[in-house]
Design a binder for these strands. Sequence first.
DNA 1: TATTGTTATACTCTATAACTATA
DNA 2: TATAGTTATAGAGTATAACAATA
Lengths: 177, 177
Amino acid sequence: MTLEPAEPAGPSGSAGPSEPDDPHSDLLAVLPRLTQLSAAFTKGRLTERAAEAAGLALDRPAMGVLVTLRTADQPLRIGEIADRMQVVGPHVTRQVQALEKRGLVRRVADPHDRRASLIEPTAAGMEAANRYVTSLLGWFAEALADWPRQDREDLTRLLNRLADDVTARLARFDAEE
Amino acid sequence: MTLEPAEPAGPSGSAGPSEPDDPHSDLLAVLPRLTQLSAAFTKGRLTERAAEAAGLALDRPAMGVLVTLRTADQPLRIGEIADRMQVVGPHVTRQVQALEKRGLVRRVADPHDRRASLIEPTAAGMEAANRYVTSLLGWFAEALADWPRQDREDLTRLLNRLADDVTARLARFDAEE
DNA sequence: TATTGTTATACTCTATAACTATA
DNA sequence: TATAGTTATAGAGTATAACAATA
């Protein structure tokens, strides 16, 4: 399946964005905003700065693995980390190697399957992950310090639902092909 | 300036994520959700599919330029497009060349400055941009079809404010360095 | 001398392909 | 023969550096 071929948004030759009475006019704003936020986080190098504040010299993908392990609260296989991060295996392999080299994670043998190993944070890794998350959330909390509690709760709730709905719809999308 | 060095999130050795009474616990959910949405749009190749539905064989950056021109509703310089997209000049130069090659945009001389040229969509480019935006918004509207109107309005409002606040804070951040 | 844009190159993040070891 | 992981390579997207033309 593909996206609908769809009629032009307005009469041919209409040059502007959606009219005010367009039923989708509110959505027109959501997509660019999500793009803007995503780009801002990347370009602002928030992740890298929070890592530096935690005393680490690691890039975003490596921090993602470390935080995934911290959140899991139990050793994970490479494949399980990849699933949770929604990336492919080889990508995780490299990040884990970088974390290992810095003594932030270690591998332990999987007692039930000698093909796999389990990855767990070291004490240093866990402490660094805590410092990192605190630093990142602290920055974010400051940015939202002026927000009414109700708005913060609404944002969290709506964003959760949006992510779920979009993910589910994309999954069906792929399945139909 | 850098992010605060910040104390560990919990007592040393505490392994889990923030406690339920953590004042930042709601924020803990926002960041991963934004990441998830961004990754979902990329991996779902929504942009590419909408472009195909509009009869175009263009990638995301090129579509970004075309939509920027459509939204502007007037010819723009390369530098102005770069500013609006928040990317650097050379990037825009290449996308415009690709769009030119396909007859979707054309260059006109800037009467006041012979160093610059103005980029404007051709009729075909404008029609394609309209088809593209309609297709993309249609998909998005379907994903949110079940949402109460109030929730959609709240999401738009909160996301707008979030993007503005985050962008402003990052700008101050950079300025302090 | 400052600014606009182009060309060429490099970097970040993630994916695919080919292979090894174990199940 | 299927699965977990690794190594090597490729691709998309964007940035930096060096340069040209005009202001």
